[in-house]
């Protein structure tokens, strides 16, 4: 009875703790473990190599390119979606038919499944029958491009534009959610603060930078963390559209881990990738907190 009283809390936490232990802690530990071995899935032979696989992969330009792709994608996604969402939210922060319709239109991609979004954009970006090139042709943009020696935009099929196209798709998908979060944040700023600012002779621009942005900082910080993490974990679009191609130009960490582990059966390399991704995300989140948390204003 005494044991039960003092340890009751532990008992109630047990189901949740068990889940975390089995499905999160154990796999992470096991990934670390595998990453120090060379494990041949066919013969089943497991030899300890220490940091051998790490050295091998970090010396492989193809793997480095995957890391670079992921980081470029992440930075562009976060910068563009958060900045764009901020301005869109500022514009949408009024109530009228037009604003409400625009709000709905911008949010819709968020509730559509990623696979559907990707399939839609694969058609839009199709060089021959896609909407994008058709519109550009009608608008005469293709003649402008011809001046630079570009015959036709290949979008997802060219090494130079594929990652950019991925970013466009990612932004389109994420923007609505970011806008909604910021809009909610803006609507919780009391109107009297703006009236006070009006009496303080503040211009609209100054109100935006000196009042709206600082008071939105909790929402902005939240979006930063969420977007950094989710951009690092992009998988579906890579898997459906390109499988990492053309020429590895759109391969990103999670997809590379999946491909290496479950298609090429190089489970050790795959674990090394997982461990590195964990470290990168951890580092990014940690530095976000270190650099920005003192600038975030909580009410």
């Amino acid at each position: 009875m005494r044991f039960f009283r003092s340890h009751a809390a532990l008992l109630f936490l047990l189901p949740a703790l068990a889940g975390i232990l089995i499905f999160i802690i154990y796999p992470i530990a096991y990934s670390f473990h595998i990453s120090f071995f060379d494990w041949d899935m066919i013969s089943g032979k497991k030899t300890f190599v220490g940091f051998g696989r790490y050295e091998h992969l970090l010396g492989d330009p193809k793997f480095i390119q995957v890391i670079v792709n992921t980081v470029v994608y992440m930075f562009s996604m976060v910068a563009v979606t958060v900045a764009l969402a901020l301005f869109l939210a500022a514009w949408l922060n009024k109530s009228s038919l037009v604003h409400n319709l625009a709000q709905t239109a911008i949010f819709t991609p968020h509730i559509v499944s990623t696979i559907s979004v990707v399939l839609l954009w694969m058609w839009v970006m199709n060089p021959d029958i896609g909407l994008l090139n058709y519109v550009m042709e009608k608008m005469g943009v293709d003649r402008l491009l011809a001046l630079f020696g570009i015959k036709k935009m290949m979008w997802l099929e060219s090494r130079t534009t594929a990652l950019f196209s991925f970013i466009v798709i990612g932004v389109w998908k994420t923007l609505g959610y970011n806008t909604l979060v910021l809009l909610a944040g803006m609507q919780s700023i009391p109107g009297q603060i703006y009236e006070g600012a009006a009496l303080d002779k503040a211009s609209s621009l100054r109100k935006f930078y000196k009042i709206t942005v600082p008071l939105l900082s909790p929402s902005l910080f939240f979006l930063l963390i969420v977007n950094v993490t989710s951009s690092f974990q992009t998988f579906e679009s890579v898997n459906v559209i390109s499988k990492g191609g053309p020429l590895n130009s759109t391969n990103m960490m999670v997809h590379w881990i999946y491909q290496t582990g479950f298609e090429f059966y190089r489970i050790s390399d795959s674990s090394v990738g997982s461990v590195l991704l964990l470290l990168i995300i951890g580092l990014a989140t940690y530095s976000n907190f270190r650099l920005l948390s003192n600038k975030v204003h909580y009410q």
Binding site: Q192, I193, E195, G196, D200, K201, S203, R206, P214, L215
Partner: peptide, 24 residues
């Protein structure tokens, strides 16, 4: 104007609150 719920800027210090209008 002094508002019912003060409408001071929560993210600024006392000094910055007063200075804001003067800077503007």
């Amino acid at each position: 104007m002094v508002f019912q719920n003060y409408a001071i800027y929560p993210h600024m210090t006392v000094k910055e609150n007063i200075e804001f209008g003067l800077v503007n």
